[in-house]
């Protein structure tokens, strides 16, 4: 039941463009798709047109940056999920399950609360999140390895243990901080939220997503070999140690940057790769681009649901992904071909 990539990629790109437009039209003030495109075009080309300043503000300042960030973060988390699953050879891995998102949160909160890394300006929080992501990813990996082998069950347990401890640490830092404002922003952000996105938030995630996905897609052959096994990959000419080190850095960077702008949005990296593999098989050269696009479309619509389902109350998007992702995770656990050899 495989769909040819030549059909799937343009189709998904069109779906992404359509989703962005539709998601911008939806809100307390409904707008037409034509208005959205006209305003976007006018802004880009510097012309003016027949719409109110309020409409222009809603489209250009409020909704469009948020929807675009949803697409970037969704794509980024899906891509990280795919590659992380190859690194640890386990379909239950994603940055949230493995505690890497929680590590990134600790780093980000330390920067916000302690004012560290101030010399990096607006990139300080992302840098802190990246550092936190690297530390937690390596930590979880080392705990999960025993006797030179990576144990699937140990990995999930190590991820959860680290995730809980790091979340606790984040709460501790936030609640004991002198900075009262931090508690409010951090709370919303720990649940994963895309609210209050500005254009200036988009540059870094966009650059990191494009470069990260590019690097991973070019390494697709090696990721395929890695998925079969370390020893096999080595005999196929892959320098496994070096590849894994690079993947740790690239994946931590992607996770750190995505978490810095959106908080810990769970399970996107788990659900999307699974669905994509059902559509196009396991070859990473196909899976990665499809996952990037589908992840973007997915998170755009989840964010629309977060904005609209309990309007005027706006839910953090992470609440919805958690509600969808938890049962999905359990379903995967139940249907996975766990063999006693793996779990013993």
């Amino acid at each position: 039941m495989r769909i040819p990539l030549a059909l799937l990629l343009p189709g998904l790109a069109a779906a992404l463009a359509l989703s962005v437009t539709l998601a911008v039209t939806i809100g307390p003030v409904n707008l037409s798709m034509l208005t959205v495109w006209n305003i976007a075009w006018a802004k880009l080309s510097g012309s003016t047109g027949m719409w109110s300043a309020a409409e222009e503000n809603i489209v250009w300042m409020l909704r469009l940056p948020r929807v675009l960030l949803a697409a970037l973060v969704g794509g980024g988390l899906a891509v990280v999920g795919v590659a992380m699953q190859a690194v640890v050879r386990n379909p239950l891995a994603d940055p949230y399950v493995l505690g890497v998102s929680s590590g990134a949160s600790v780093g980000a909160v330390l920067v916000l609360g302690g004012g560290w890394l101030g010399f990096l300006g607006i990139y300080a929080v992302s840098a802190g999140a990246f550092a936190g992501a690297v530390v937690s990813f390596v930590l979880v990996f080392l705990i999960a390895v025993a006797g030179g082998r990576l144990w699937p069950l140990r990995l999930v347990l190590a991820g959860m243990a680290c995730g809980y401890s790091l979340s606790g640490l984040t709460s501790l830092i936030v609640l004991t901080s002198e900075n009262r404002e931090l508690a409010r922003t951090a709370m919303e952000w720990m649940l994963g939220s895309l609210g209050g996105t500005a254009w200036s938030d988009l540059g870094l995630p966009a650059a990191v997503l494009v470069m990260g996905t590019g690097y991973l897609a070019l390494s697709g052959r090696k990721l395929n070999a890695l998925l079969v096994g370390d020893e096999t990959a080595a005999t196929l000419g892959v320098d496994v140690g070096r590849l894994r080190l690079r993947l740790f850095i690239v994946l931590s960077l992607l996770t750190g940057v995505m978490v810095a702008v959106s908080g810990a949005i769970g399970f996107v990296g788990l659900v999307i790769p699974h669905v994509v593999r059902m559509l196009v098989g396991t070859d990473h050269r196909r899976v990665l681009p499809v996952a990037a696009l589908l992840g973007g479309v997915f998170l755009i619509w989840v964010d629309v649901a977060a904005r609209m389902s309990f309007a005027p109350i706006e839910l953090p998007v992470g609440v919805i992904t958690a509600l969808l992702g938890g049962p999905f995770f359990i379903w995967m656990l139940a249907t996975q071909r766990w063999r006693s050899k793996d779990t013993a």
Binding site: Q85, R89, N90, P91, P152, R221, K222, N224, A225, L227, V228, G229, E231, T232, L236, G237, V238, R277, G281, T282, D283, Q336, R337, K341, D342
Partner: peptide, 20 residues
């Protein structure tokens, strides 16, 4: 080496021989 949870088609596996 035993392969894990992921699956490839037979021709994909053989194509991996071209990796080096």
């Amino acid at each position: 080496e035993r392969m894990g949870e992921f699956d490839f088609t037979v021709d994909e596996i053989v194509m991996m021989g071209r990796t080096p």
